[in-house]
């Protein structure tokens, strides 16, 4: 069995690869920002909200974490379309990814919030801070700092599994790979190249998290110790 590698047919389609890479990055960036925002809100509601709200968040988290992302994406894009609500495909894909990752984020941030000692809240309340101020200034930031490595991993995963949305017709990196593959029949080469691009993207996402962490957690930047 001999196989002659020929990367040229793949590499000469670099504009497609570039476009796919950019779409993947775009999806990841938007979804990361929204996911962390919504996940943090979810975690706050899950721990400190009124009882029905807590229950609602719990149900959301469990439903999302226990069903395949692909089905969630199909539901949002094709399911809702047949019910008459047509979402633009990229928007639908970003929405599906956000709803998915926000559920995981809720659980991660919740773990952080629950690790904050009761005395912290008491001290802040006794200084006269309102409930919202206590959450914003005394709970959320250290909670995020504690779970930041888990968050970074989760969002690298998000970037990697955003390839799933090619199945609903988004021309992100994996979608482009499929297209090049059916043009060139150079399956092996396509996946080597695209795999390498995903690897680089993972490093980029981790680096992005590191940079944001430096800005967000000055204590850690200065002392280098865990909270």
């Amino acid at each position: 069995m001999t196989y002659t590698f020929d990367f040229w047919p793949v590499l000469e389609r670099w504009p497609l690869l570039l476009k796919g890479t950019l779409v993947t990055l775009e999806l990841t960036l938007i979804t990361t920002a929204l996911g962390i925002l919504l996940g943090s809100v979810g975690a706050v509601l899950r721990t400190g909200g009124p009882r029905p709200v807590r229950a609602f968040v719990a149900v959301y988290v469990e439903v999302i974490r226990n069903t395949p992302l692909l089905i969630q994406a199909y539901f949002l894009i094709f399911g809702l379309a047949s019910a008459g609500l047509r979402l633009p495909i990229l928007f639908g894909a970003a929405l599906a990814l956000t709803i998915n990752v926000a559920a995981y984020t809720t659980e991660i941030v919740r773990a952080g919030i629950e690790s904050i000692h009761r005395g912290q809240t008491e001290a802040a309340e006794c200084l006269g801070l309102s409930r919202l101020q206590v959450y914003l200034h005394v709970i959320i930031r250290p909670a995020l700092e504690r779970v930041y490595p888990s968050l970074a991993s989760q969002y690298v995963l998000l970037m990697l599994f955003s390839s799933i949305v090619s199945a609903v017709g988004v021309d992100e990196l994996f979608g482009m790979a499929n297209r090049i593959q059916s043009d060139t029949f150079r399956n092996f080469e396509v996946f080597v190249v695209v795999g390498a691009i995903y690897l680089v993207l993972s490093v980029v996402v981790r680096f992005g998290f590191w940079l944001v962490g430096q800005a967000l957690f000055p204590r850690r930047r200065k002392l280098g110790t865990a909270l």
């Binding site: 001290a123 250290p142 909270l227």
Partner: peptide, 10 residues
Amino acid sequence: FQGYNLFPHL
């Protein structure tokens, strides 16, 4: 308080 309860991130 006995345990100081300073905010460690500040």
